[in-house]
Design a protein around this nucleic acid. Structure first.
Length: 207
DNA sequence: CGCTCAGAGTTAACGCGACT
DNA sequence: AGTCGCGTTAACTCTGAGCG
């Protein structure tokens, strides 16, 4: 299947892609379910066997998938955590040289926090960045230690090399373009995008 | 300076219904 | 009866602004 948005002009396509950032997760989920786009992260608990986890992909990841789908008409595969990144047996104690694996680290986990505080001179905090980094490492299959993760977190925290256009509110906030009417602005944009997506739904069902 | 607020995303926890 | 998935909810974090 070809692009689902070829009837739009280049400028309109670009606007649509950009305004997807203004959708909230609920709206995105609805669209994904309609079209069978994967929302959950899958894990390879056993070699070559994929299992859906309870973990939901982060907004940026899901949006990328939506964009790809709109452009190509193909349903992209889900995120997968490879077998080697999954903790098979949990160590009693986490140390700086312990490998940073799925199932071992969790946000707000006291043991993880202790070690990460230790290797970052007390600066580490659980938050969106920690979540983002950990997911990325797991899915990409980069096996590193807690110590290395802490350093990576520090680096990203000091000078963020990545942008988060999908966090529309925070992005607008940092550019100072948030006014009293931001909420209605978001709804306006979201409504427009949803209307366009709905048209696509109808078109794909006909074919 | 520290506190609270806004509005967003994410998680864990909870409850409900479907299914076995 | 027990389990699983799904949807909702409360609590947390993020940022800059506003206030005492």
């Amino acid at each position: 299947m070809a692009s689902l948005i070829s009837h739009l002009t280049q400028a309109q396509q670009k606007e649509l892609m950009n305004d997807l950032n203004y959708l909230n997760m609920q709206e995105i989920k609805t669209f994904c379910r309609h079209h069978g786009l994967p929302l959950h992260i899958h894990a390879e608990y056993k070699k070559n066997v994929l299992q859906k986890t309870k973990e939901l992909d982060r907004k940026g990841v899901v949006l990328d998938r939506v964009r790809q789908y709109l452009k190509t008409g193909k349903v992209p595969p889900p995120s997968v955590i490879p077998n080697k990144m999954i903790a098979q047996n949990l160590p009693k104690e986490i140390r700086p040289e312990t490998h940073f694996l799925f199932g071992l680290y969790k946000n707000r986990d006291a043991n993880s926090l202790k070690v990460l505080k230790q290797v970052t001179k007390g600066q580490f905090q659980f938050g969106a960045l920690a979540q983002e980094l950990s997911r990325e490492l797991w899915v990409q299959g980069k096996k590193i230690t807690f110590s290395a993760f802490g350093k990576l977190w520090l680096k990203e925290n000091m000078n963020p090399s990545r942008e988060h256009p999908e966090w529309a509110f925070l992005t607008d906030l940092s550019t100072g373009s948030v006014g009293r009417d931001w909420k209605s602005l978001r709804q306006q944009k979201a409504k427009k995008v949803m209307a366009e997506l709905k048209r696509i739904s109808a078109a794909t069902k006909r074919s």
